Amino acid sequence: MKKLLFAIFILFTSCVAKDSPFSPSLAKVLDGIIDKTHNFDVILIVASKLEEHDLLFITSGPGYNPNVMDGYYIYKDKLITYYQTDSTDRSDIIDTKYLYKYEGNIPNYIDVYEKLISCEPKQYLYEIIDGHKLTVVNNQKSLGFRKNEIKGDNVIKNKQLNQILNDFIYSNVEVLYELRFRTKNNKHYALIRSGIYYDKDKYP
């Protein structure tokens, strides 16, 4: 009888659903961000391994970006979206098997491409340590990125613009960088930004 009861107990506990896909450390971080940003309904988590650092860029805002989403989950009435720029296994931090797949509009939340939004999103940076612990990064320079000065000069002929671009890459560690040129009112501008994805329709 005891063996039967034990077997039933094991079966029952193995079928209990997880509270969320998030590890206790990530749930604690999300709880803190939710407390700080009551007016935002969406939190975007982007994971990237840059040089030797495994990082989580966590941004709170009013809407979600369907192009930057491997899956999502509703946590404490907030929409949490997740996207990673590589194939690193981060299951100890977020179990993607428990995320919902995006299959169209998410009810009660705003798609940033369907509504004009003016806001200042809040971003937080965390590093994953030993595969399961999170530590906040208040200053990217503390990570020791770009220890050697960037000196590439084989693409942009203008030395001043080349130096500006190199300085930008040195101080903004990201997956990719975008350099665009624009003419307005007979004035020429160079636009530089870092990002996690590019829009192929904007490139010749």
Rank of each mutant, 00 (worst) to 15 (best):
A7W: 09
I10A: 14
T13W: 10
V16Y: 15
D19T: 10
S20K: 06
P21H: 04
S23E: 09
P24R: 05
V29P: 02
V29I: 15
D31H: 08
H38T: 04
N39A: 12
F40N: 14
F40Q: 07
D41M: 04
D41I: 04
I43C: 03
I43H: 00
I45H: 01
A47N: 14
D54A: 06
I58V: 08
T59F: 03
S60T: 15
S60R: 12
G61T: 12
P62M: 09
G63T: 01
P66E: 03
P66M: 01
N67E: 11
V68Y: 02
D70V: 01
G71S: 07
Y73I: 00
I74T: 01
I74W: 00
Y75F: 15
K76T: 08
K76V: 10
D77L: 14
K78G: 08
L79H: 00
S87N: 15
T88K: 09
D89Q: 07
D92H: 03
I93T: 14
I94G: 10
D95W: 01
T96I: 00
K97C: 02
Y98Q: 07
K101C: 07
K101R: 14
E103T: 07
N105G: 09
I106D: 01
P107L: 10
I110E: 01
D111F: 03
V112N: 07
E114W: 02
K115F: 06
L116H: 05
E120L: 12
E120C: 05
E120S: 15
P121C: 11
Q123M: 12
Y124G: 10
Y124V: 08
Y126D: 05
E127N: 10
I129Q: 07
I129H: 05
D130L: 11
G131S: 13
H132Q: 13
L134M: 04
L134V: 08
L134S: 14
V137G: 10
N138M: 10
N138Q: 15
N139G: 08
Q140S: 06
K141H: 04
K141R: 13
S142N: 08
F145V: 03
R146H: 08
N148E: 13
E149I: 12
K151A: 13
K151G: 11
N154M: 12
N154S: 14
I156D: 15
I156A: 14
K157Q: 15
K157I: 02
N158D: 15
K159I: 02
Q160P: 04
L161H: 06
N162I: 00
N162C: 12
Q163H: 13
Q163F: 07
L165H: 04
L165V: 13
I169G: 06
I169F: 03
Y170T: 07
S171N: 15
N172W: 00
V173K: 03
V173L: 11
E174R: 07
L176V: 01
Y177K: 05
Y177W: 14
L179N: 12
R180C: 09
R180I: 01
F181E: 11
R182F: 03
K184C: 08
N186D: 14
K187F: 06
H188D: 15
Y189C: 02
G195Y: 01
G195M: 02
Y198P: 05
D201R: 03
K202A: 10
P204F: 12
